[in-house]
Write a protein that binds this DNA or RNA. Structure first.
Lengths: 336, 336
DNA sequence: CGTTAGCACTCTCTCTATGCGAGTGCTAAG
DNA sequence: CTTAGCACTCGCATAGAGAGAGTGCTAACG
């Protein structure tokens, strides 16, 4: 792949990112100043196609980048764009808040990314085994109520507000808190829901069953309905020609809301700081038209979660990469 | 409107609800056993059209119900269906949880309604002025953290977990809690964000500014990004032929996620226990193809919020009405 | 030997014409 | 009042023609 071919490939991709339509030799010769005729470009295009960097929708159409083409483009040809001052400010401002709830922050991060890039964004909370319980408090809360607050070693917090039977006194709650803190410290959050400690039963007597039930409502318990993964900015997809048929949109929606998909996808990023997945690399038939730019979010050494922009394969990779990078950097500065 | 015309109107609507296609005299005569010929039905249809109960997409098409037709159908012709045992069980089970956070319950309710009916569902939290602060606690939470818990007279709870400067000791938090409880009790939640009490400043000294900032993060404060209204089950719309063009879907999405729309819409239900809004009754050009079946949710005498199923105007009103009614009843039993 | 002009060919997309089917309104007879 | 018959109206699907854009190949050029 010599230098000229690279430039041709880049030109095709740039053009296609803009127009969403197959790029022909003629338009290419006219638009970009190659100093080459259409005929010469045709030869170059034929080579690039043969090598797998370009596809042809049908015999007499122009060329369209293939996964391999995009991959080469992202890895080697992309001119890394910097964000505008406004965009950078917006990202910085988002991480100045005092709030430090995991879900709130993750939502915030996804919304921010979607807003800045104009594509949908997804986030996922830590893979369950990671978050370990640090402290656990059961606090009286109004009449017949109690708040269950759990802090984890990722520095973030889970909570539930519950109603409890009338015969449980504040003193009982305090005793429960003491027992729970002692018994559960260091336990993965996932396991808390299934806890059935003998010690617990001895210490708490008749309230043991109640406490167990309450614990099952913490995140990770099967009654926790809040999805681990969330999607923001889905509506941006309506604007792209590749999703102008309902079936396409529907397929993407189904994919993004299928509870295992986003999770597995982002978990697949492992601990790559900045990752790009293009088309079939998503390992999902329905995701053939999609690409992803994701980052790993850490807090205190742990992988806390992943965030990613998911958009049409025909994505403005330069811009998105810059945005994701910046967001990850701010996150790490604020919570790392 | 004599009895026979009513039966014809009902037949047209029933048929249209099923097929989503204009109903002609011929099909009507064939399908439903009227003992009348197509020609006679044509006369009846012409009358119903003249009176405004039916529309014609174009001269030589069949008839389609108008808003007025649907309205008459819902008010007088509808045979009230009962839910299946499974559906009823599902609804009952959903309200057995111990959790009593407003947002959790509202999400749950919307998800439930969408799941049972097969249409999208929306909920909205109480109109701001209603929820008044009962108690407010600031609790130490791990290192450099604090939980701000606010309970309101609607029996539900708002909370934030925040980070605080290192020089704020647990004792400081306790003092703040005492001051805040005294000063803010009874205040509408909305106003808390804007609070600037002289008393507060005297009692808290150098921490006053911090507390004010923290308070602004409670719901109602403008930094609270969580939407008041939420939509569940949007994807059900993909299945309906009336939304087979992206533009339609997009318009509905825009409507449902426009932060003022669902709010105004549901607020418009006032305190009607069970309300139906059809097409133009939604008072929104883009909502012409939609209908809504909503209920008012109360807790302790207050209107706590509204929940509604929003779907195509061509909706299974009988089923949806039964489901919404049942959900509202269970809600009131659990939280009323 | 790389580059370019020319040419025949392919394929999609748009436009137009045509015919079919479903439905209507009207009229006249039962 | 009901019904059969009939002429008429639209929408929609199908087919054919033509334009436009693009391709591959060949042969000439510097």
């Amino acid at each position: 792949m010599d230098d000229r071919k690279s430039r041709v490939l880049a030109a095709v991709i740039d053009q296609y990112l803009e127009s969403a339509e197959p790029v022909g030799s003629r338009t290419l010769a006219r638009r970009k100043a190659f100093g080459l005729s259409a005929a010469t470009l045709r030869n170059e295009l034929a080579d690039l196609e043969e090598w797998g960097y370009l596809d042809k929708p049908h015999t007499s159409a122009g060329r369209v980048p293939s996964d391999k083409g995009y991959r080469y483009y992202v890895d080697r040809l992309l001119v890394r764009r910097t964000l505008t001052a406004q965009e950078a400010d917006r990202i910085r401002a988002a991480y100045r808040a005092h709030v430090r709830e995991a879900t709130w922050f993750l939502h915030q991060t996804a919304r921010l990314l979607s807003g800045v890039t104009g594509y949908p964004a997804v986030v996922i909370t830590p893979p369950p085994p990671v978050a370990r319980l640090l402290s656990l408090q059961l606090l009286p809360m109004g009449e017949g109520g109690a708040a269950l607050l759990a802090e984890t070693d990722t520095g973030l917090v889970a909570r539930r507000v519950l109603s409890i039977p009338a015969d449980v006194a504040p003193a009982d709650l305090a005793r429960m808190t003491a027992v729970l803190s002692r018994e559960l410290a260091g336990m993965p959050l996932t396991d808390v829901a299934d806890v059935h400690l003998v010690n617990l039963e001895r210490a708490l007597g008749r309230h043991a069953a109640l406490v167990e039930e309450l614990l099952s409502l913490l995140p990770g318990g099967d009654t926790e309905q809040a999805p681990l993964a969330t999607v923001e900015g889905f509506d941006t997809l309506f604007g792209f020609p590749e999703f102008h048929e309902v079936e396409r949109i529907r397929a993407v929606w189904a994919l993004l809301t299928r509870d295992t998909f986003v999770g597995r996808l982002l978990a697949g990023l492992g601990d790559e700081a900045l990752a790009v997945r293009i088309g079939e690399e998503l390992a999902e038939a329905a995701g053939r038209d999609l690409s992803l730019v994701g980052a790993t979010l850490r807090s205190g050494g742990h992988v806390l979660g992943h965030v990613a922009v998911i958009g049409p394969r025909r994505m403005d990779y330069g811009h998105v990469l810059a945005a994701v990078e910046q967001v990850a950097a701010e996150w790490n500065r604020a919570l790392g």
